[in-house]
Write a protein that binds this DNA or RNA. Structure first.
Lengths: 214, 214
DNA sequence: GTCTATACGTCGATAGAC
DNA sequence: GTCTATCGACGTATAGAC
C-alpha cells in the first residue's frame, strides 16, 4: 500500500537517536534470525544481543525483555510481509495467473536474499506462539485476516480485469490460496520432491475456478 | 497396515515390567500434552516427570534425556495418527465424499476426547523441530510421506469404486488434500470464522476433480 | 542509551540408596 | 527401575558506571 522507504524510521536525525533506532533494528533482525532458526525459548536474550552487536542492557532498555522483543518483531514482520505481498501482487502479469502463483510459491520455497530460508520457520514459530496465547494470538489473527483480504481482493481485481469469473468470494478465495500455499510449503520443506512446483500452480488455478490447462 | 492391538505393549506381563511399560506410556503422554501446550524448550524434564507421576530419574532411565523423550513421542505419534487416519478412511461412506472430508476436517478442528485441542499444536511443534534438524526431520518426512500415500491410495480406491476418475495421481492427490487440511486448519485455529466448514469440504471436492455441487 | 557486573532462579543431568 | 539429593551450567533481569 505504501511506498518503500530507504532504511528504517523516517523521523528524527540526531546521531544519538540514529544509534537508538539502529539498535532497535539490529536487535529485531537478530531476533528474527535466531528465533526462526532455533526457536524463541531455545535462544537466550544474551545470544540475541550478541548477534546484534549489543548487550542485554540495550535489549532490556528497548523492549523490556525477550517477550517484548518478540512482540516488536511481530509488528515489523507484519509490515514487511504485507509490503512484499502487495508488491508481488502489483508486479504480477495480468494476463497469466500462473506467473503470479509461481512468484508467490517461489517466495515461500526459495531462499530469501535477506532472511535466508528461515521465512517459513519464523512464520510457523509465530503461529505457535499465537495459538498458545491471546497476546500474540490476536495480533497474528489480525495479520492473517489482512493477508487473506489482500490476496482475495488482488485476485478479484485480476479476475474482473480479465473477465474471468471467480468461483468464490474474495475472502474465501484468500483463505484457500493462503491455506494451499501454507500447507504445501510445509510439506515441501520436509520433502521437496513430494510437492512439485507444477502441482502448486495447477492446484491454485483449479481452486480459483480456472481451466486446468496450464 | 497392521491390526490395532488393545492397550499398549503386547509382550511381557510381570508386574515389574508392567510398571516399566506404564511409566513409558505415562511419560510420553505427559510429554505430548506439555510439549504441545507450552513447547518443547519451555517445558522442563522435571515438569514432564511430575505430570506423569514419576521423577526425572525414571525419565532419564527410560529415554536418556528430554531429547530422547521427544523422539519416543514422535514414534508413538506416528503410530497413533496413522491408525486413526486408516480407521477414518475405512469408516467413510463410499457414496458421499463430503462425509469423508467432513470427518477429516472435524478431527483436525474439533477437540479430541483424549488429547484435547492440542492435536494441531503438537503437529506444528514437531514440524518445527523437524525443519530445524535432520534427526527429527528425516523421521517426520517419512511420516508425511506415509500419510500422503494413505490418503492418496484411499481416495484412489474410492474413486475407482464409484467410477469417478481422479484428476491427479494418488501421490499428488494426497499432498494436496493434506496441504489444504493443514493450511486451512492453521488459519481456522486463529480465526475460525475465516474458514467455514463448507469451504473446506467444497475445496477438497474441487481439487479432486469432482463436481462443485455439494 | 549502552555497557559491565552480578544476583537469583531454574534447568539438564548424574550419583547413590532402596 | 525408581527415588532423593545435588552439582555445574545457563538464563532472566537488574543496578550502577559512563
Amino acid at each position: 500500500m505504501e511506498s518503500s522507504r530507504t532504511p528504517e524510521h523516517p523521523r528524527r536525525r540526531t546521531p544519538q537517536a540514529q544509534r537508538k533506532s539502529e539498535s532497535r533494528a539490529r536487535l529485531i533482525d537478530a531476533a528474527a534470525d535466531l528465533f526462526a532458526r532455533k526457536g524463541f525459548h531455545a535462544v537466550s536474550a544474551e545470544a540475541v544481543a550478541e548477534a546484534a552487536g549489543r548487550t542485554t542492557g540495550a535489549l532490556y532498555s528497548h523492549f523490556g525483555g525477550k517477550e517484548g522483543l518478540l512482540l516488536a518483531l511481530l509488528e515489523v514482520w507484519k509490515e514487511r510481509t504485507s509490503e512484499e505481498l502487495a508488491a508481488e501482487i502489483a508486479a504480477g502479469d495480468p494476463a497469466d495467473p500462473a506467473v503470479h502463483f509461481s512468484a508467490m510459491w517461489g517466495s515461500l520455497t526459495r531462499p530469501h536474499p535477506e532472511h535466508g530460508d528461515s521465512w517459513l520457520l519464523l512464520e510457523t514459530e509465530l503461529w505457535l506462539h499465537a495459538a498458545r496465547g491471546p497476546l500474540i494470538g490476536d495480533r497474528l489473527a489480525q495479520r492473517y485476516t489482512e493477508i487473506r483480504a489482500q490476496l482475495g481482493e488482488g485476485l478479484a481485481d485480476w479476475a474482473k480485469a480479465t473477465g474471468t469469473p471467480l468461483a468464490r468470494t474474495p475472502e474465501e478465495t484468500g483463505a484457500l490460496v493462503l491455506g494451499i500455499l501454507l500447507g504445501l510449503s510445509m510439506q515441501h520443506r520436509l520433502e521437496p520432491r513430494a510437492v512439485p512446483d507444477g502441482l502448486v500452480i495447477e492446484a491454485l488455478g483449479t481452486v480459483l475456478g480456472l481451466g486446468r490447462s496450464a
